[in-house]
Write a protein that binds this DNA or RNA. Sequence first.
DNA 1: TTGAAAGCGCTAACAC
DNA 2: GTGTTAGCGCTTTCAA
Lengths: 339, 339
Amino acid sequence: MAATLKDIARQVGVSVTTVSRALAGYDDVAEGTKERIKAVASELGYSPNIVAQRLQKQRTDTLGFIMPTFGPRFSDPFFSEFIAGVGNEAASHEYDLLVSAHAPNSAGELKAYERAVRRGWVDGLIVVRTREDDTRIQLLCAHNFPFVAFGRTSDDLEFPYVDEDSETGMRLLVQHLIDLGHKRIGLIAAPSGLMFGRYRLQGYYDTMRDNNLPVQPEWVVEGDMTQRGGAEAVTPLLGINPRLTAIIGGNDLMAIGAINRIQQQGLQVGRDVAVGGFDDIPLAAYTSPPLTTIHQPIYEIGQRTCAMLIDVINGRAPTTPHSLLTPTLIIRESSGNPI
Amino acid sequence: MAATLKDIARQVGVSVTTVSRALAGYDDVAEGTKERIKAVASELGYSPNIVAQRLQKQRTDTLGFIMPTFGPRFSDPFFSEFIAGVGNEAASHEYDLLVSAHAPNSAGELKAYERAVRRGWVDGLIVVRTREDDTRIQLLCAHNFPFVAFGRTSDDLEFPYVDEDSETGMRLLVQHLIDLGHKRIGLIAAPSGLMFGRYRLQGYYDTMRDNNLPVQPEWVVEGDMTQRGGAEAVTPLLGINPRLTAIIGGNDLMAIGAINRIQQQGLQVGRDVAVGGFDDIPLAAYTSPPLTTIHQPIYEIGQRTCAMLIDVINGRAPTTPHSLLTPTLIIRESSGNPI
DNA sequence: TTGAAAGCGCTAACAC
DNA sequence: GTGTTAGCGCTTTCAA
């Protein structure tokens, strides 16, 4: 099959060692030999066997990413953009990216992490969608395994992370709605246990309180982060009397589901009910009406997380082990005019 | 760091070979020895070094997937769902999935394929979004490297693929619109060069012709597969006089962009202009109005492609080396009522 | 300037 | 039953 150092050595008539050194560009190889070796190497279409290199170097130059995915028909734009960011950054440092998927909190998920830690198939891991009491992170910390998280946790473990300031993001959005005159604002929250959901929830409560707007418990409903979940969650919210004048989706997907259901009920989004989202997925600009939302630079976050991980792996202390990005408010039509 | 066979061997007082065999479950190891070895192994938290195993076995148990992605802010639901399908199938066969991303037709892309072929870091590759005159496939065929494509090509190379029957899919959609009374139907086509775009285009032309409906050249405009592309492409289409009564997006993303732009022009989708898409991404059911489209089971396609690749790698001839899936028409509101 | 030898961790053919 | 030996392809001392 593929040519090896041995093949080249035989053909040129030198030792494997010399070939290795010639190709590695050491300058203790005679010019002539080097030339011949290089010629034969390219003639044979040689490239080093990466597995052998890795065994010898005792590192894999591979990063792992275990996607926490619900069900099969899963299609969260977050992941494709995040992977693109991580992947491109990894590639630019000559790292590969190993991807797998497991349902969050499942036995399979934790096993995948354990295997990653023990079997030395990746040099480090990227963890996303952190959870309160996150067993993945506890495991990684306990084993002192290199990783960087996108998101924080509630316990007091010390680890490097990148996160967006969801709380501030949500404050921007809620305040925007309040400034438009809304007082009864509902929220479709992320499933409890997810850290970012918690921050978003906090931002919602705090902003309402700061504006002296009491929140009724039934104004907050949990959704499963999908359009369908958003649509289903909005039904009870619309049944509330007096009617809510605004509804926030804990992410854009749920906001889009909510818009759909609101319209099905014969109400007009942006006039009868204002809607806001969170994430600013590419589609958000193209819904009808276009979605007011909070923008997070997912692609850049992916890059940054990846760069940080590579630093960690190479024993370089990241310049900023905890980086918190401030999201921005994108006002479109779904939040409507002042009332 | 991680425990090795040698560590266990030393501690138990046997040879590395015996340990290897005991752990592999061979029955030519004395019960007592086996017991002790297993005990020490688990005590030490041993798991085999995967890189060493791979070097020795001369296979990586890893599949490669190089995503053809345009620009950074890229977020095609197709990919996340496809990866999930491939990844889960791979995992169930104990294969890993290595993912990277390159712009289609870029130099970097082809290099990535060359490296994959030469460096033995993956046992096989998955190729998607096949193109006419596809250099990736030519390369893979020339090197006899195991791969399976999602999509066909225009040349007569023989290779295993899974594909959806885009032509039939498009026929279903166009006929549906014609049955509703439409005669002037525009199309936002996929970029030329993409095989699936070609089939879809063909399905469009054929169905129009079969219904004796002449097509004006300006009815067909190319878009770049994104919402933005769809929105931009729709502008010239709307300028046509007499106005088109229906517009088809070459994929759902473009259809969604088209809907957006049509509405911005003050026209009502499903009444003034019917719109159809292609793919049935999860969001399609939640646009306003919900999108009439052609459903393809991306997740299953991913699984199937992956399963086929694993067969190929293991020298099993796939039962069906060319599998063509028939898509189905999903009628929602964007195509409107009969006119 | 070059080569022999060892070793990364594992498996397997072949003795004992 | 168990150990010895060799080898996967590569890098890296250390001697020549």
